[in-house]
Design a protein around this nucleic acid. Structure first.
Lengths: 202, 202
DNA sequence: GTCTATATTGTGATAGAC
DNA sequence: GTCTATCACAATATAGAC
C-alpha cells in the first residue's frame, strides 16, 4: 500500500518492515503483513520461507541502517566538536525519518541478546580510533578527562531517548500535544549538542 | 518459584510480573506464568479473568513503581543540585534492582500510547513547581538559562538508556563482558550527576 | 480453590489449482 | 508467481469433577 513496488519481493519487504517495526516480532501477524502488501499469506511463505526469516531480513536492514552511523565519528580529521555536531544532526534526522526503529531494535535485542553477535561484524572495529581521537583532545586540554565511552553512551542516549519514550515524554511534559512535542524534537539536535559540549569542554 | 507466597493471588502476580516484564505482553504465554507460579493455567483465569486483566495489574504496578519518583525532585527545599544527586542515586538503584522494567514500560506504551492516560492520574501535577524551582536557580545565576524540560528529559534518558540498551552497550563498548558492563553501571550514577551538573551550571 | 479435560479461536505454514 | 482452501498446532479461555 502506498508506493508502487518494483517487484513483489520488495513489496513484501516494505510491508514487513512497516508492521514488524511498529508491532515487534511477537506482535506481528503474517496476515497483517499480507494485507499491508496487498497480497495473501501464501506469497509471504513463497518468497521468505517463514516468519522468522522475514523478520531477520527486516531486523538486519534496520540494524545496519542505525549502527554504522558511528563510523561518521571516526572518518574525519576535523576536531571532535565539529564531528559531533555533524553526527548529531545526521543521527537525529535519521531517527526523525524512522522514529520507531530505535525502540524496535532495543526491544528485539533485549528479547534475544545473544543474536547481536550475528549482526555486529566488523562495524565497530574502528571504535578504538575514536577513543584515541577523543583522548588526544583530552591531553590537549580541550575536553575534560573522562572515559570516552561515557561520552558516547550519553550521546546515543540523549539522541534516542525522546523518541523511544515518546508516549511518556509527550504526556508528562507536553500534555499530549503532538505539535508541541514535534517542535520540541526539532529543537532537540541543538539542545543535545550544547548539553554535551557544555558538559565535556574544559 | 523462589519465595514462599503468602497466598495464591500474590504468587500468581509475582510470576506474572517476572514473565511479562521480561517477555512483554505479546511474548508472554499464560502457560509460562503458570509454570513459574507452580500451578496450572486454569487458576490464572480463576483469579484474573483474562490475560489482559493480568497484564494490566502487572503494568500498573511497574508503572507506578517508576513514575512517582519524579516527586522526589519537588518534595524538598534544598538546592536543585542536591536534590538531583539524591534522585539519581535513588533512581539508578531502583533500575539496578529492576533492570527490565524501564524497557518493558517503554515498549508497552509505544504499543498502546493512548493507554497512558489511564495510568498517569495526578502524579505529575506538581511538575510546574519543579519548573519554578529550576527557573528560580536560573534567575539566581546558578543554572544556565534553558528549558527545564530539556534538563529533566536528559536526566531520565541518561539514567535509563544504559539499561534499556544493555545488549548493544555491552557488546559495542564492553566486548560482551558482563562484569565490565556491571562495573560501568556501578560508576554510572556519579558520571550522570557530573555530566548534568557540568552541563547546566553557569 | 485447585485440578484435568476440552472447547474455541488464532496463526504459521503447506497443498494444489490456475 | 499467485491464488484459495486447508492443515496442524499453539494459546486463551471455560466446564465440570473433586
Amino acid at each position: 500500500m502506498g508506493e508502487i513496488p518494483t517487484n513483489t519481493e520488495q513489496n513484501i519487504l516494505n510491508a514487513a518492515k512497516k508492521v514488524f517495526i511498529e508491532k515487534g516480532r511477537q506482535g506481528t501477524r503474517m496476515q497483517e503483513i499480507a494485507n499491508e502488501a496487498g497480497i495473501n499469506k501464501a506469497l509471504l511463505h513463497y518468497y521468505f520461507r517463514s516468519k522468522e526469516k522475514l523478520f531477520e531480513a527486516v531486523f538486519l536492514e534496520a540494524f545496519h541502517k542505525f549502527l554504522p552511523q558511528i563510523e561518521q565519528l571516526v572518518e574525519s580529521d576535523r576536531p571532535f566538536f565539529e564531528v559531533l555536531k555533524f553526527f548529531i544532526d545526521n543521527y537525529i534526522n535519521l531517527i526523525f525519518e524512522n522514529p520507531h526503529i530505535p525502540g524496535f531494535i532495543l526491544h528485539e535485542l533485549s528479547q534475544n541478546p545473544d543474536s547481536i553477535a550475528r549482526f555486529m561484524s566488523q562495524r565497530v572495529s574502528n571504535l578504538p580510533k575514536l577513543y584515541d581521537k577523543i583522548e588526544k583532545e583530552m591531553t590537549d586540554g580541550i575536553i575534560k578527562p573522562m572515559d570516552p565511552r561515557q561520552i558516547l553512551i550519553n550521546l546515543i542516549g540523549l539522541c534516542v531517548f525522546p523518541f523511544v519514550a515518546k508516549p511518556i515524554v509527550k504526556s508528562v511534559f507536553f500534555q499530549n500535544d503532538e505539535e508541541v512535542y514535534q517542535s520540541f524534537l526539532l529543537d532537540r539536535k541543538y539542545q543535545v549538542y550544547d548539553f554535551i559540549v557544555n558538559s565535556i569542554k574544559t
